[in-house]
Nucleic acid binder design. Structure first.
Lengths: 402, 402
DNA sequence: ACTATTTCGTCATGGCGCTTAACAAATTAG
DNA sequence: CTAATTTGTTAAGCGCCATGACGAAATAGT
């Protein structure tokens, strides 16, 4: 459990990893899995032509993947064209599964996703975790995980790994929660509290949310900026299909980008940070609601009912977001900006002012702003899929587990 | 000439590139070159233990590299330890060379760098290029290139490629200058104007400058933000040792990050952009100098002489840079911010206010600010080295050229 | 001085993984 | 019903690295 499961690095020309024939085999197994996974049922010949290997080579690769339970033979393809019909191959629906878990402020959720990307089992427990110590929370989570694993087992699936999304900053060891303000956790090592029978990783929920967007979003480009608002305003930068983490894992912090340099003081020491204008507390206050008792969910409700104070507050937040995103778009030139998490639900009232501000300030270099369709499901799905991706990226590594 | 020479991508698990034994061989040749290049003279056994291959395998790889003229055998190592001494291997000083060229506003420069990273030949021509059409400028540049190539040939070097640094935005085909305001060039395809006998690439000078910092800087981390001020304020983002280009190649634009959202109007359509406070024109004006006749170089001179108006103007620019960089540092969490190009010379007067502003606003997440020692040499060196890196990254591809 | 030990570079052998070429099987086209 | 086309498998071959053994060249110990 040293790094997030889905971030196995191939190792470039400067790397120390030797290149042997075993490595070549592993990478070609991964190529076959990726191809079949991405392009639906495919014959051996079709796979071969797509990845550039010969039919003979693909045959032996496929044999190995079928023996490992990662691929399935669906039977002969319906003959439409001339020539002998191929035998359709598909990713197995009865092999390894990725277990995703989410520790939310108000709930715990676990799900199992098979290699085809389908959710095959899930479990939720409602109830606040704010201020509760880690031990009982993780105890309950582990119970839910075992429940989901048992359900998945009933469908012929076995767990390849567990990924846990947490509303806070996670160290690069992928197990220590540095701080999670909404849970009031600080420097907690979750390693010993997680089910020991599964290889596990922990990561920030915004990170998993952005990966979900990358893997499951419609038409999401390989370079984009994901903006969500769970704790503070979390951004995530995805470059070339990889999540940018930064040297200390802090990358993607959008909440403390200066919007008005002489604005009100912020707890971070700066002035006029984005959070002062578009953070949960600030928006609630601007809408005339008391931050203590109300939550973000209420805003969408009120705005939909036509509450002018709320709408005004959201317009202001959109403008502030537009200013902060102008800087980010200038710096990164992303293919898109995606609003996710709680912001997705508020998009109808945020977008107009946000887009106006952004378009005005980035004339000619503008960038599409889209809304995630995953919404609050993002982190959980991203976690589960991170395990699935790890299997697709290195089928050989996982086949040995069983 | 489709992409910058140094950006050949290996192709991850999802890629279409098949993994064959030839590819494996190529990558292992690259590993040997990189290792010898980075860690000085090394015996075959030392290389083997470093890259994880056996001595026998490394022997055949080294044989091939010596036959191609990329490696040299220096003779027996001085025996210090027990056992038979190895035979020292070094990167050849008489093989391929990288030719770098720079089209500056006031000069043209060309140099040849060998695989060891040493400059072996150079040529400069002074005189302004502002407003001159591309054809005569490139004609002169080509003449300089041929002159440098001839000089390199006299030392037993042959040109492996040419990389040209341009003060403007270059399209992703690495040959078309989209716009270079200081030269008044727009949508010029330099391809036909470059020496046809060499594989050539064109790129922005700020990009090459940041790569020079990555490859030649002391202790430059693999993730950093490079800030220079040649045309406008060019930033460059380097992530994991790779230059971030963005979907349209615009990435790294720092000049139009909003600093004061209600500030003065900017030509870009926005308001209060960084360029309004820290751009060449703005700083000259704030210092009481007329932008038309004076240049950045003058500022360092005056500031050193104690000119209070100039120092005040630079302090202001530093503060604005600090605000803009706060956003960037929050978003990217880089290992360092490096001031390069013209900013390096102004650093003594920019740094105090810049660092104060940055430290105050990023308490706890602060980031070191350093000054490039390459200064104005960066772009030229980066260009030449980009060719050298391409050779190190794929020795087999280059050996065939000769 | 002489031997044992260590390390280096090379060679022969073998295993592994892909390619090539040939073939039987299953379909369409004429 | 035959020819053509495409699929999947098989056997032979080649490239590349690993293994193990060897001579060469140094140090360490007696």
């Amino acid at each position: 459990m040293t790094a997030p499961l889905h971030e196995a690095r191939p190792g470039g020309p400067g790397s120390r990893v030797p290149d042997t024939q075993q490595g070549m085999r592993r990478r070609n197994l991964a190529r076959v899995m990726h191809t079949v996974s991405a392009e639906g049922p495919l014959s051996r010949a079709a796979v071969a032509s797509r990845i550039g290997l010969t039919r003979a080579a693909v045959s032996t690769l496929v044999d190995e993947l079928i023996r490992s339970g990662l691929l399935e033979e669906l039977g002969p393809e319906r003959p439409g064209r001339v020539g002998r019909p191929g035998s359709a191959l598909a990713v197995s629906g009865r092999g390894p599964a990725g277990i995703g878990a989410e520790i939310g402020v108000d709930h715990l959720a676990v799900c199992a996703v098979d290699l085809r990307g389908e959710i095959r089992a899930r479990a939720v427990r409602h109830g606040t975790n704010r201020g509760r110590p880690p031990q009982p929370v993780l105890g309950e989570l582990t119970a839910l995980v075992r429940q989901v694993v048992a359900a998945a087992d009933g469908e012929g699936l076995w767990p390849a790994g567990l990924a846990v999304a947490v509303p806070g900053l996670v160290a690069s060891d992928a197990r220590t929660v540095v701080r999670a303000p909404n849970l009031d956790w600080h420097d907690v090592d979750l390693g010993p509290l997680l089910p020991s029978e599964l290889p596990s990783t922990v990561d920030n929920e915004a990170n998993f949310g952005s990966l979900a967007e990358l893997w499951l979003g419609d038409d999401t480009p390989r370079d984009f900026l994901h903006v969500s608002a769970e704790i503070g305003i979390g951004g995530a930068v995805v470059v070339d299909g990889r999540l940018l983490r930064g040297t200390r894992g802090f990358a993607g912090e959008l909440g403390h980008v200066p919007v008005r340099p002489e604005g009100p003081r912020c707890a971070c020491g700066g002035r006029g940070c984005l959070e002062q204008y578009a953070g949960e507390e600030a928006v609630l206050r601007a809408a005339g609601l008391s931050p203590g008792e109300h939550r973000v969910e209420l805003l969408a409700e009120r705005a939909a009912q036509g509450d002018q104070d709320v709408r005004h507050a959201l317009r202001g937040a959109g403008t502030a977001l537009g200013i902060a995103l102008t800087g980010a778009v200038n710096l990164l030139d992303p293919g898109a900006v995606v609003l996710g998490g709680a912001l997705a639900g508020l998009a109808p009232w945020l977008l107009p002012s946000l887009e106006r501000e952004l378009a005005r300030r980035t004339a000619g270099r503008a960038c599409a702003v889209t809304v995630s369709r995953l919404g609050s499901e993002g982190p959980l799905l991203g976690a589960a899929h991170s395990v699935v991706r790890a299997v697709l990226d290195d089928p050989a590594g996982v086949a040995g587990q069983r």
